[in-house]
Amino acid sequence: MAQILVNGEPQTVEFPLTVTELIQLNKVYQPEMVSVQVNEEFADREDWDKLQLKEGDAVDFLYFMGGGAHD
């Protein structure tokens, strides 16, 4: 068991853990609408399957948001 930060909140996880697995673990709604940063570096979607997280990593999920006006 180890700790990482997910969207600024501590989360206890078990390694090995890839970004894809973390997304599943957090039941992220519509992963195609999410962009992922690991330790303030953007992780390419194509790399999520093989990108292994480490103890203390800070992961941020950024969501696409529309809103405003139809222009």
Partner: peptide, 24 residues
Amino acid sequence: GILRFTGQTFTHLPGTACYRCMFK
């Protein structure tokens, strides 16, 4: 951007992160 009960915003100046830096 806004959706349901949430919102997000950032400001871009030349040389700082842009929307595509975050969302390709």
